[in-house]
Design a protein around this nucleic acid. Structure first.
Lengths: 170, 170
DNA sequence: TATTGTTATACTCTATAACTATA
DNA sequence: TATAGTTATAGAGTATAACAATA
């Protein structure tokens, strides 16, 4: 029930060539208040950015969510599933299959904790670290570089700080 | 495979009180490069904004996507499903059930076009117009008002224009 | 032959309840 | 009893193929 991929103007091609003079009939639709709705524009921008992320990191077959998990494991080795998942806003049940995927690709490991045998210590494997390093490079040189090109470094910083405020304080 | 609802620091509560001195063990996780990843912050901000939108418009039971359809129908009466859906980035097959929902609530009508009996002319009903008017009021006075309060009008405009650039040109 | 609306279908993401093994 | 990981399941959202009616 939301927005999806492509869509800028749409249709208006199958308009009768007997079109009604100059009233603008058959033209692109009026977006109206939609282009002023922050939520709408935010959603479209987010879809574009994720789309580009996927394209840039395609050689490594990593989704944005998987990349975020690898980043977090690298910075916080030995944490358990509940901690990693909740930090990323992923529900524990949904994190299981996600970890299964990463572990089966030998990017990270689960090992039962000695202190508390209920929980798993999560750590990146050497391969996981290597893949993460390559992913970071692709993100920096292709993905974020394109954004910097579009916005410029100052605007990009401004955008980031405003979005961070919304994510934290709104 | 993405971010979801709440999550700011997470866990770190079930830490042994035999905690490891002052090394920061048991503390909140390090977000690392994540807080600099535009896509990540963008996604979180978008989720927050949609969440607030739903809350503000809850009395009218409208999702952001439904609201965007009503807005578009109001500005572009008589257009067909393909045109409305594609403008919003909704795939035609998925737009069917969505319209069914709006039509069954008597917010809009489908009527076979006289020119091309394959297509449906979509228009808001009087009730649809009334609901849209009330929704616009709630969005303006509660939702967007909160955003203005957080960012201030100038920053909000800046943010909107940067997001629009990304949505259009990225 | 092409297009509109539609159905069927599948895959991903998100969400909740409940189980097991540990604590 | 409470918590960690897990399973099962259900619901949105998104995607593609194909069909009937119409052009």
């Amino acid at each position: 029930m939301t927005v999806s991929r492509s869509a800028t103007a749409g249709g208006a091609k199958a308009r009768k060539e007997a079109g009604e003079t100059a009233t603008g009939e058959g033209a692109a639709l009026q977006m109206g208040e939609l282009s002023e709705l922050l939520g709408y524009v935010l959603k479209r921008a987010q879809l574009r950015v994720f789309e580009d992320f996927l394209r840039c990191v395609a050689p490594l077959q990593l989704t944005p969510a998987q990349f975020s998990v690898l980043l977090l494991l690298d910075r916080n080795p030995g944490r358990n599933q509940t901690e990693i998942a909740s930090t990323l806003g992923i529900l524990r049940p949904n994190f299981v299959a996600m970890l299964d995927g990463l572990e089966s690709r030998d990017l990270c490991t689960r090992t039962r904790s000695a202190n508390d045998r209920r929980s798993h210590n999560l750590v990146l494997t050497d391969k996981g670290k290597a893949v993460l390093a390559r992913a970071k490079r692709l993100v920096a040189t292709k993905h974020e570089a394109r954004l910097n090109e579009l916005l410029g470094p100052e605007s990009r910083a401004t955008l980031l700080s405003m979005l961070t405020r919304i994510a934290r304080e709104f």
